[in-house]
Design a protein around this nucleic acid. Structure first.
Lengths: 183, 183
DNA sequence: CGCGATTATCTGTTATAACAAGCATGTCCC
DNA sequence: GGGACATGCTTGTTATAACAGATAATCGCG
């Protein structure tokens, strides 16, 4: 039961805030989000830009992949398995290599197996592990979707110069250093 | 020799690279993902870095917010509602301002209402819309979580200089220009 | 008014994400 | 070589994301 008690406290007015920072430079994201206040710090602004840009691009890619009946994570997994070659990989290894974390590799692979894109098999040496390999159908699916992904990603970033891309990559890698690895 | 040929400034190139030889320039992300092949293009490398960095930072924030019983999107919504003041906002307006898209604002707000953090009410003038306002309890929750979010975000990016942050922000905003707005 | 088109939100349904507990090996150490 | 511990995956459960269709109110126009 939610007490839902009526708060005796009226919502504190958010009226003219007392000048928190020099809002001299109206930021682009601030306008996009129709925010009235300026960001509390450059760190916050960078973080929000990062998350928003990532979300927009992932969404764009998602829309492109949808007609092929495959999600970004599934595509990512297939790429990983193709790269791993015929030996296959364990669930843990796949998890480590995924661009963004998935706490349930088992069912992710289960879905891919149900569609015939991968095949799973208990390890012969260590019977605890399950080795997953990509199938011919999986390779075909990748062959079909690779150009879509490549051209989408390229199209999203084509307006930046090589130098700008390198700077961006460098900054992102350095930014990531303080974030704990996804576990 | 690096595959990074400096062709004339046309960003074309980045054709399929079959070169299985060890990459001359081992990128940081490539090592992180234990990839054997080099990235097919700078665009792909930038995209993957972007998505991964965003995911790691969001995950870090998620872990910090979890003890307070609130998700990132919920926190974002409450911030938006606090910023909007006592007039409240419609579902559509909230959706526009969310940093990352949520296709189901109704139930997102429903969960917040169930916890007493927001209150909803049909618009008097236009009875189609539902105006949502933050409650006292919602403001309290924000007061509790704001320092956590601020310090987390700050901690994640504190090792970058102001100039680097500004460059990063600028590049992200420019990168975003080609991505369709989240809808 | 009344009809159709539009807008804004809600509901139903399915799929996936997240977390926690469980089960089957494998390893180590006495 | 047998029991405690570690490892690797699976299963159960709940919450949330995603999408499509339904519902309700408003607006434009004759």
């Amino acid at each position: 039961m939610t007490p839902q008690k009526k708060s005796s406290r009226t919502p504190r007015d958010s009226g003219p805030r007392k000048n928190p920072a020099p809002a001299a430079k109206p930021s682009g994201l601030q306008a996009e989000l129709r925010q009235t206040k300026s960001f509390s710090s450059l760190h916050a602004e960078a973080f929000l830009n990062l998350v928003r840009t990532s979300a927009q691009m992932q969404h764009a890619l998602h829309l492109k992949l949808k007609p092929y009946g495959i999600t970004e994570t599934q595509y990512n997994s297939l790429r990983i398995l193709r790269g791993a070659g015929p030996h296959g990989l364990t669930c843990a290894e796949i998890g480590e290599r995924l661009v963004s974390r998935d706490p349930d590799i088992t069912r992710l692979l289960g879905r891919l197996e149900r569609e015939g894109l991968v095949r799973r098999e208990r390890g012969a040496k260590d019977r605890r592990v399950v080795l997953t390999r990509i199938t011919g159908a999986g390779l075909d699916r990748l062959k079909e979707t690779d150009p879509v992904v490549n051209s989408t990603v390229h199209g999203l970033l084509a307006h930046l110069s090589q130098a700008e891309l390198k700077t961006l990559i460098d900054l992102l890698e350095r930014a990531r250093r303080m974030a704990a690895p996804l576990k």
